[in-house]
Amino acid sequence: MKRKKHTSAEDEAQVDMTPMLDIVFIMLIFFIVTTSFVKEKSLDVNRPEDNQSNNNKPSKSLSIRIDETGQILMGGRQVDVRRVVANAQTFLAENNTDTAAIQAHEDTEEGIVVEVMNQVKIAGIDKVSVLVKKD
């Protein structure tokens, strides 16, 4: 009778990995082929252009003061309510702006403030803010 030689653990148990790798590659090919690539529907966004040169200089807004007696002051001069449009258009010709600030005293009648706002909007300024000065 022949005796068996003791063999090392490496010689006894080996698993052949080739069939498993074949199956993995076949599955990979299957999933790539069966996957459908659909272009998603979306909205196009129109972003405004970046104007760095215009951001450096501050925009000047039209400043109008109305005191408690209803006198309108534009640029340090007293102005009649009917002349607000002309003065605002003159200011717009000299300065590129779309904003105006009306500073009214808290005792000023609301009708005068509303009339000045209407005159400024007629002149072509859309963004008008009203500030109330309290004493």
Rank of each mutant, 00 (worst) to 15 (best):
D16E: 07
M17E: 03
M17V: 15
M17G: 00
P19V: 06
M20G: 02
L21C: 02
D22M: 15
D22F: 06
D22W: 13
I23K: 09
V24W: 07
V24G: 02
V24A: 11
V24M: 12
I26T: 08
I26L: 12
M27E: 04
M27Q: 07
L28A: 12
L28D: 02
I29L: 14
I29C: 11
I29T: 05
F30Y: 13
F30R: 02
F31P: 03
F31K: 04
I32S: 09
I32G: 05
V33K: 08
T34Q: 05
T35N: 08
T35W: 01
S36W: 01
F37V: 13
F37L: 13
V38T: 10
K39A: 11
E40T: 09
K41A: 12
D44A: 08
V45S: 07
V45E: 04
E49L: 06
N51C: 05
N51D: 14
N51S: 10
S53G: 04
S53R: 10
N54C: 08
N54H: 10
N54P: 02
N55I: 12
N55F: 10
N56Q: 14
N56D: 11
K57F: 06
P58G: 04
P58Y: 04
S59F: 09
K60P: 01
K60I: 14
L62N: 03
L62Y: 09
S63D: 11
S63T: 10
S63M: 10
I64W: 05
I64Q: 08
R65H: 09
R65C: 02
R65S: 08
R65G: 02
E68H: 01
T69W: 00
T69G: 00
T69Y: 15
T69P: 01
Q71F: 12
Q71S: 09
Q71I: 10
Q71E: 15
Q71K: 15
Q71V: 13
I72A: 08
L73M: 14
L73G: 00
L73S: 15
G75F: 04
R77D: 12
D80Q: 09
V81W: 01
V81S: 12
V81P: 04
V81N: 05
R82I: 01
R82F: 05
V84D: 07
V85R: 15
V85Y: 03
V85H: 01
A86P: 00
A86S: 13
N87C: 03
N87L: 12
Q89A: 05
T90R: 14
L92F: 02
L92K: 13
N96M: 01
N96A: 15
T97H: 04
D98S: 12
D98R: 11
D98T: 12
D98W: 03
T99D: 13
T99M: 15
A100H: 09
I102G: 09
Q103T: 14
A104Q: 15
H105T: 01
H105C: 08
E106K: 12
D107K: 14
D107P: 00
E109F: 00
E109T: 05
E110I: 08
G111S: 11
I112C: 03
I112V: 13
V114K: 06
V114I: 07
V114W: 03
E115G: 03
V116D: 09
V116M: 07
M117F: 02
M117I: 12
M117Q: 13
N118L: 10
N118S: 11
N118D: 14
N118M: 08
Q119T: 01
Q119A: 14
Q119V: 04
V120A: 00
V120N: 02
K121W: 08
